[in-house]
Amino acid sequence: MAVDTAARADAAHAPAQPGKWRLGGTLWLLGMPGVVAVVWTLLPTLKANAALLPLAPEVVLLLSGLQTSALLALAVALGVWLAPRVGLQAPAVSAWLAGRPAGPALRAQLLPGIVGGVAGAAWLWVLSRLAPTALQPSDPASAMPLVVKLLYGGITEELMVRWGVMTLLLWLGWRLLQRGQGRPGKGLVAAAVLLSAVLFAVGHLPAAQALAGVLTVPVVAFVLVGNTVFGLVAGWLFARQGLEAAIIAHVLAHWLSSPLL
């Protein structure tokens, strides 16, 4: 009886958590501007190649947007369902939705996120100096707009790769190797960070192929190494600080590096 009373007392004093539907819907809406931005940039290219398309460019654009939106929804749902089980969180968003001040949770992530963003910007600058000729756009105007990098790269990618994929990888390792008992070990967390960073890098290969025309060994190595390094930074921030820290770092890295590239 005493144990039950203590447990009820602890539950009464535990911070309120937002419902899964509210958290999922909020995170999905947070990632949707990035989806709209990246899909919208495809329209000129689709119209220029309209004769090669099986459908009207606007229809292809709509289908592409729906597909990306569905993938975002799946990633968000995985994170919402699995993250609490393995100790991952979006503390500022969760606090806000639960009616608690989001400021303390956000401030705790701000400095790590800024440090990660500055380091990421420096890394992007280094990569720009080492990039293979095939990955350097002949027309600077054809480069990805900054707004797409900030919204899709900085927010949507973090929701899909870190919140969705990394959470799933950590949960799978935790279930298989720890039988779902206790907190995931440091080795499992490190493995999830690494694997999600590699998958994050692999996801950039189609864009590299579109730019380079062919995936040569130097191009593949450059894309994989360059993106994996930043993926490690973002994954570590997510694991140690929270999702918002990874988003801050990713957005800041693109924003700070943009004038230097």
Rank of each mutant, 00 (worst) to 15 (best):
L97D: 05
A11S: 08
P112R: 09
A48W: 13
G117I: 11
G120S: 05
G65D: 03
P104V: 08
V86M: 01
G173Q: 06
V126Q: 10
A143S: 12
L106M: 11
V214C: 10
L29N: 15
L243T: 01
G231I: 03
V233S: 06
A131S: 12
L97K: 04
V38Q: 04
V220C: 06
V214M: 11
L43H: 13
E158S: 10
A221D: 12
A50P: 07
A37T: 06
G79C: 07
A98W: 01
L30Q: 03
P91C: 10
V115I: 14
L88T: 02
A70G: 14
R179P: 06
L42Q: 14
P57S: 05
G120P: 02
A131Q: 15
L63P: 05
V38S: 08
G231H: 00
N49K: 13
W174R: 00
L62F: 14
V60W: 03
V35D: 06
V36G: 10
H254V: 09
S138R: 12
A192G: 06
W81H: 12
Q181G: 08
P101H: 05
Q89E: 14
L30W: 00
R175P: 08
Q67Y: 13
R85V: 09
Q178C: 00
Q181E: 15
R8G: 13
V202D: 10
L127E: 05
Q241H: 13
V76S: 02
V86Q: 00
L146N: 05
A6G: 08
